[in-house]
């Protein structure tokens, strides 16, 4: 994964090469990226320290007041905590599941193509729509509770999404269902690079299956780890559609996330300054965590290569 290795890019041409393309040719794509990504972010950065309501012509600088509000208000404080918790559990669980699926389906099982498609399918479905299906399953009068009653586990019956103690875990279950297929595809692509000869050679040298997995497969999967971890982390932090479909952020604030609060504070409550401050927090989290992952995992990739 050449996320951080600029050297690879430069190899494409040398100075004075007639193949050099003037950088102005990249201008349209660059202009779009700057207009949609970078310019608004700079402005948003400023809004985060103001009390702008979205309508009045001027916004007043109020310093760090928005951030104090975030930590003081139960909705936003809960959103920050939930986002961290969901992301942490989700990233670990989904990557373990994805890696297990990939290893299992990399062998020449007859039905492997069908199974791969089947596991990948949840990812392509509209998160909002599949979220509603899950809400039906976990509803108090829904499929799961009815099933539990039939098999005699009445004491397990509960309002999965309406109980603050179960709501986050139920959401994580849905997320794992949705994204392990994607993680699987990342790891499968990585496993293509693991040659059978290497495995056989190690086996002849007397390495156990676990040793071979640990010493051959894992290092060669380094690029896949990078992509999968960074992608699932960003997905976890930005969690929005699924929350809206499954719980709407409730009960009370038990399943609010930073993204749902950005939307609610800005576009429902008209508090654009506070919304920007929340968005800044979300951005900061993602940038810090993703860059750390890229640097640390990039170093591991280099060590494995």
């Amino acid at each position: 994964m050449p996320f951080l290795s600029g050297r690879k890019l430069r190899r494409g041409g040398t100075r004075g090469n007639p193949l050099r393309v003037p950088w102005i040719v990249a201008f349209p794509s660059l202009a779009f990226t700057i207009a949609i990504h970078f310019l608004p972010v700079v402005v948003g950065l400023w809004y985060a320290f103001t009390d702008w309501d979205g309508l009045s012509p001027n916004a007043n600088w109020i310093g760090l007041a928005n951030f104090r509000t975030i930590f003081a208000h139960p909705a936003t404080r809960s959103a920050l905590w939930n986002t961290l918790l969901i992301t942490g559990v989700f990233v670990v669980a989904v990557n373990v599941a994805g890696l297990a699926l990939a290893v299992a389906l990399n062998r020449s099982v007859k039905s492997r193509h069908v199974l791969r498609s089947l596991f990948f399918l949840p990812f392509v479905l509209m998160p909002l729509a599949s979220g509603y299906i899950w809400r039906y399953i976990f509803d108090y009068t829904g499929v799961l509770n009815r099933f539990l009653q039939v098999v005699g586990l009445e004491e397990w019956v509960r309002p999965w999404f309406a109980d603050p103690s179960t709501v986050l875990w139920t959401i994580v279950v849905v997320l794992i269902w949705q994204y392990s297929g994607l993680a699987m595809v990342f790891y499968l692509a990585g496993l293509q690079g693991v040659s059978d000869e290497l495995w056989e050679a190690a086996a002849i040298d007397g390495a156990s299956t676990w040793m071979r997995f640990r010493r051959i497969t894992v290092p060669l999967l380094a690029p896949a780890f990078t992509v999968s971890l960074v992608f699932t982390t960003i997905t976890g932090f930005r969690l929005f559609d699924q929350i809206i479909a499954l719980t709407g952020g409730g009960p009370v604030y038990a399943s609010e996330t930073l993204a749902t609060q950005v939307w609610k504070q800005s576009f429902v409550n008209g508090n654009f300054g506070l919304g920007s401050a929340l968005a800044l927090m979300l951005t900061g989290l993602i940038v810090v965590v993703a860059v750390t992952q890229l640097v640390v995992l990039g170093r591991r990739e280099a060590a494995a290569a």
């Binding site: 949609i36 990504h37 972010v41 948003g44 809004y47 960003i234 932090f237 950005v262 800005s266």
Partner: peptide, 15 residues
Amino acid sequence: GIIMPLELGIIPLYA
């Protein structure tokens, strides 16, 4: 640009 979430830019963009 890929890593950075759009949430922060969304409000100025909307405006």
